[in-house]
Design a protein around this nucleic acid. Structure first.
Lengths: 186, 186
DNA sequence: AAATATACTTACTAATAAGTAAGTAACAAA
DNA sequence: TTTGTTACTTACTTATTAGTAAGTATATTT
């Protein structure tokens, strides 16, 4: 695949996670990459097209990661830890996760982008739910109630945590991570 | 104060919490209110001015609410419950909270808006921290670690929860609320 | 050698954005 | 009665946006 195309997607994702979908323009990308805005339209005819492509790549990356952890035989703690580390890294880079940055804009997105955003959210929560359930069955995790509720709470705290910590300059993100972990210890 | 001015602020807040700050325009407001965009500029010379004013009002409302609960002698559970109910209401209205909707746009906001957003976030976390601390001292709440970390986690989960539940159509928000409450029971 | 495909640029268009300057109608104050 | 104030409208300007049509240089295929 084209290097320019990949650079556009990479920068596009970075801009979404930094400034937000409705605040970035093709000009932001073209200036940074030293190309013309029409070059971006060559690869991604519409902005919706670019947004959708970025989300599809993110879904793919997420699936590759979870498949990889599964095939390597990571236990539930290790898998949860690896997932949370994505957020620790985002926090270090002062970026939101893609779901958390597109979430508030959901009503302004085109249908295909909205569909991918929904799909990604669903995949994450389903994966987390299964992880929590299987961890509880093995007595590795302990928590009350349905796993899907715990999964939603954890995911919400991570998504919201990145936003809150970025507003207040830099709240200690490690403590959020510890708070989630502590909460699951038997 | 002017009725038009109040309607502008009310609609402005609603638009921020629905479409996001960078997706709404003075046209959205003027069309809805049947006035011209210059009329909005008469009350709020710049968009930043409007955003800042909306945040200031929100801070004031928050302080009035907490003061009111204090003076009425609400216990810690009742206070936490009342706070969470704001989010339950937001969820019902399919709106985000103002912090969660402006959060992702923080790098695109003007200095004065950013300052108020920071102030509001800080006030909420400080209030929640004190509430959790005093509740724990009375053995009404039970949790490990520092109260400020628990406060941040709870606030993050609420802010993120509204976003996640709105993406996936309508995840049961009540369960998030229960999950937080369950977690604090001694 | 001619035709085709790739990866762009040049040069626009149409729409929408925030913002402004000057005017006006209605009412109150001096 | 004039003067000023409030609450707007009219009529713009300037900048930026997503998006497009047509052209071009380079490499690849036939």
């Amino acid at each position: 695949m084209s290097v320019t195309r990949e650079k556009i997607m990479e920068l596009g994702e970075s801009l979404i996670r930094t400034k937000g979908y409705n605040a970035f323009s093709y000009q932001d990308i073209s200036t940074e990459l030293g190309i013309k805005n029409a070059a971006i339209h060559y690869y991604f005819p519409t902005k919706e097209n670019l947004g959708t492509s970025i989300l599809k790549t993110n879904i793919q990356r997420f699936e590759e990661m979870t498949d990889n952890m599964q095939s390597r035989g990571f236990d539930e703690w290790k898998q949860l830890d690896s997932f949370i580390k994505i957020y620790v890294k985002s926090h270090r880079e002062q970026k939101l996760c893609i779901v958390g940055s597109l979430g508030p804009d959901v009503y302004t997105l085109g249908e295909s982008t909205k569909a991918e955003l929904f799909k990604m959210t669903e995949k994450i929560i389903t994966w987390l739910t299964n992880l929590l359930d299987s961890g509880r069955a093995k007595n590795i995790f302990a928590f009350e109630g349905e796993a899907v509720n715990k999964a939603t709470t954890i995911f919400s705290a991570l998504v919201g945590g990145l936003q809150i910590s970025r507003i207040s300059g830099n709240t200690d993100f490690k403590s959020l991570y510890m708070s989630i972990a502590e909460d699951l210890k038997p």
